[in-house]
C-alpha cells in the first residue's frame, strides 16, 4: 500500500462525504435505495428463518412431550373456548368504559422492517409522510422514534439504544427516563422517595413528542443505592424488537 494512494483515496472519500453532507448526492441515492432494501430484506428474512430452524432443532428432543401436551391442551381448549367467549364479552364492555389506548385521531403508516443492526430500518420514508421525530409503535407498544428519513426508507432509534431517552412513568405514577445500554433497557433518574417495585408496568408519560400511555415494559430488579439521589430499575421490554416484522409510524404534524 502506498501512502500517496491512500491520501488520494482519502481525498475522494472527503469529496463524496462533502457532496452527501450538503445533500447533493440525494439524486443518486434515492433511485438506488431499492438495492440495499432488497438485499437487506433477503438477509434479514434468512436470519429469521435460521433462527426458527435453530429453535426447531433444539426442541426436537422435546417433541414427544409436546405431543402429550398437545393432547392435554386439546381437551382444555373446549373449556377455554367457553371461558374466552365470556372474557371477550367482558372485555368489550370494559373497553367501552375505558379510553382506547391510542387516540383515534392518530393516523398510522404501516412499514415493513428491513433490518435491525444498531437501528431498525423500515421501508417507508418521506414519500409516506414520515418525518424525523415521529413515534413508531406496534399495537400500543412503543418501538422507537424516527431518527433519519430518506425518500423510501427510515431509521428508527430503538429504546434499547444508548442515545435513547424516553420520558416514562410506571403504573404507580413514578416518573423517570427510559434509556438503553448494550441492548438492555432501564428506568433511570427515579427519585428515591418515589415508589418503585418489581413488575410495575412502564409506559410513556407523553412528553418530548412521545404519545402518552405507550407500553415499554415491566420493571425487573431495582437498583436503589441510598447514597445516590436517584434509583434505577432494569426493564424487561414488552416486545423483542429484533423479532419485529411490521411496525406502525404515527403521523403527527
Amino acid at each position: 500500500m502506498h501512502a500517496t494512494r491512500i491520501h488520494f483515496y482519502i481525498g475522494i472519500a472527503l469529496f463524496i462525504f462533502a457532496l452527501d453532507f450538503f445533500g447533493i448526492l440525494v439524486f443518486v441515492k434515492d433511485p438506488l435505495a431499492f438495492i440495499p432494501q432488497i438485499t437487506k430484506r433477503a438477509v434479514f428474512s434468512v436470519s429469521h428463518s435460521l433462527g426458527n430452524f435453530g429453535t426447531l432443532i433444539f426442541s426436537y428432543s422435546q417433541i414427544s412431550e409436546v405431543i402429550k401436551e398437545r393432547d392435554r391442551l386439546k381437551s382444555d381448549t373446549v373449556d377455554l373456548s367457553e371461558r374466552m367467549r365470556q372474557v371477550i364479552a367482558e372485555n368489550e364492555s370494559l373497553r367501552r368504559q375505558l379510553e382506547a389506548p391510542l387516540s383515534p385521531s392518530y393516523s398510522f403508516v404501516p412499514a415493513t422492517v428491513v433490518s435491525i443492526s444498531r437501528y431498525m430500518e423500515i421501508d417507508k420514508g418521506l414519500e409516506s409522510g414520515i418525518k424525523v421525530g415521529m413515534t413508531v409503535v406496534d399495537g400500543n407498544v412503543l418501538i422507537g422514534k424516527v431518527l433519519q428519513v430518506e425518500t423510501h426508507r427510515s431509521l428508527i432509534l430503538l429504546p434499547t439504544d444508548i442515545e435513547s431517552a424516553i420520558p416514562a412513568k410506571t403504573s404507580r405514577e413514578t416518573r423517570g427516563i427510559v434509556g438503553g445500554a448494550s441492548g438492555t433497557l432501564s428506568l433511570n433518574t427515579v427519585l428515591q422517595k418515589d415508589p418503585l417495585f418489581q413488575d410495575d408496568t412502564v409506559i410513556t408519560s407523553g412528553e418530548e413528542g412521545f404519545p402518552p400511555n405507550l407500553l415499554i415494559g415491566k420493571t425487573a430488579h431495582i437498583n436503589a443505592d441510598d447514597s445516590s439521589v436517584y434509583k434505577q430499575a432494569a426493564i424487561i421490554p414488552t416486545l423483542d424488537y429484533k423479532r419485529e416484522v411490521t411496525v406502525f409510524v404515527i403521523l403527527t404534524q
Binding site: 500500500m1 501512502a3 491512500i6 491520501h7 483515496y9 482519502i10 475522494i12 472519500a13 472527503l14 469529496f15 463524496i16 462525504f17 462533502a18 457532496l19 452527501d20 453532507f21 448526492l25 441515492k29 438506488l32 440495499p36 438485499t39 437487506k40 443492526s117 437501528y119 430500518e121 433519519q148 430518506e150 426508507r153 431509521l155
Partner: peptide, 19 residues
C-alpha cells in the same frame, strides 16, 4: 450507503486507519 450514514464517513475512517 447500506447503513444510511453520510456516504464517505466510514471510508475516511478505514483509510485513516490504513494510513
Amino acid at each position: 450507503f447500506f447503513s444510511m450514514r453520510y456516504i464517505g464517513v466510514s471510508s475516511i475512517y478505514f483509510l485513516a486507519t490504513l494510513f
